[in-house]
Simulated assay, not measured.
Amino acid sequence: MKVIHYCQHVLGMGHFFRSLEIAKALDKEQVIFVAGGTKPNQELPANVKYYQLSGLCMDENFGGLMPTTADRKLEDVKKERADSIFRLFEKEKPDVFLIELFPFGRKAFRFELIPVLDAIKEGRFGDVKVICSLRDILVERDDGGKHEARCVKYLNKYFDLLLIHSDPKIASLDETFKALNQITIPYTYTGFAARQPKSDIRDKLRKKYGIADNEKLLIASAGGGKVGGELMNSVFDAFSAMQLEKTRMFMFTGPFFDQNKFDKIYNSAADYENIIVEKFATDFTDLLTAADAMISMAGYNTCMDILTSGTPSAVLPFNQNHEQRMRAEKIAKHIPLKILESKDLIASGMEDVINTLLIRNRSTQNHGIDLDGASKSAQAIRKSG
């Protein structure tokens, strides 16, 4: 089976890594991973061929698209991308077109998706099944139902299957998509698509990084890094002032973190032997199992990493929409999880957070949340094709 897997991340990396887990689970299939954001420095599995579109991302005010290459015109990039995707389908003639998020999001990318979907509908590429890959919680809309009506229209016209990467006892789609009962195509909950750490990796990684048995390791992460600067500054200032003995901190600002802000933190860290600042860790999920605590933004993948690792954690939800806070609050009903507020970002507040996390034990409780979403998604995709 040949799968063209479309994933466009415009802000963080959550969409990319969730999609990559599903591509990994399709290990017996040929996956052409079509992406239009900045590619993270991440090794891809052998079954995945990466197809890079000319880059587009959200502008700094989240008001519209802009090219990731500064000297390019938006309309030129859009035309190039649309032509490129269409030619890819003409050449590859896949069995499955797996689209991440659209039509529930990525409305701005209709210019390149609708022409392909129309051509699939007309049979121009052969018999291609179209599947939507959707996360658990959608961003709220205040448009009188126009967005939901458009989603239903596109789903029922173009798509064959909807995969919802959630455990419905934690988050069901109808909580944030009221028109669910108007969808006429089949849909299924797959469980959360979680990255799984390697087994028995904790001791190996602690040895690799020279962390003694009596030392504590705190990880601070801003996810993709386009947001989270305030959190990184707060954690760095608090941790460096505390001068904790036998405690280290690894800080990962994210690959999209502002370079000037990164340089400031990185240079400041040079004065402390127990602080390491990097943009990204390819072994982040494994490394989290070696940690004793984590402070991070509250994206989908981070929350899943907390569930798979059991690491004592505190998360700061992105405040421009309710998605991250809603997910964090739901998960906090099943595991000990500190949800950070603005008061926690002041020096004394963050010191309290760090101290509390470092004395907590790793969670070993069976939370009962379905984290097998990648495998179940792959099974559903194979069955559809």
Results as ranks from 00 to 15, higher is better:
D142A: 03
K264R: 13
L155P: 02
K383I: 14
R141M: 09
P94L: 13
A149K: 15
H9M: 07
V96W: 10
G55L: 05
I201Q: 08
A179S: 14
I114C: 05
L358D: 14
P186R: 13
L74C: 06
I4F: 06
L134Q: 10
N260S: 09
N361E: 15
E80P: 13
K343L: 11
Q243Y: 00
A220G: 15
D167R: 07
D76T: 14
Y50S: 03
Q324H: 12
A25G: 07
V34E: 10
H9T: 15
P197A: 02
V128R: 12
M1T: 13
K73L: 09
A328N: 06
N233D: 15
E341S: 14
I381F: 08
A23Y: 01
L340D: 09
A222S: 13
F89I: 05
E273C: 00
S19M: 10
Y154G: 01
L162C: 08
F256Y: 11
G373Y: 02
A212T: 13
D95M: 02
D71M: 02
D372C: 09
K330F: 02
Q42A: 03
D372K: 14
K178F: 00
L65V: 10
Q320F: 06
T308M: 11
M232P: 13
Q320K: 14
T188Y: 08
E43M: 11
A46P: 07
L101F: 04
S166D: 07
P317W: 00
E75C: 02
Q52C: 06
E90K: 10
P317I: 01
V152C: 06
V10W: 00
A238V: 05
K93C: 11
F33K: 04
S363D: 15
F256R: 07
K93P: 03
A119H: 04
S221M: 12
F256H: 04
A378V: 14
S133A: 13
S268H: 05
G373K: 07
F280C: 04
A270I: 01
D370G: 01
I275V: 14
M249G: 05
L74N: 14
L98E: 09
Q30M: 09
K261E: 09
I164Y: 02
M58N: 12
L205C: 07
I331Y: 01
L138R: 09
A23S: 13
K216A: 11
K73Y: 01
L287Y: 01
S240I: 12
T289E: 06
D167M: 06
D76G: 10
V315E: 02
V152F: 00
G229N: 04
I295Y: 01
D95P: 12
M249E: 07
R150E: 12
K330S: 08
A171S: 15
R150Q: 11
K264F: 01
A290T: 08
E341A: 09
L56H: 04
V77Q: 05
M350F: 01
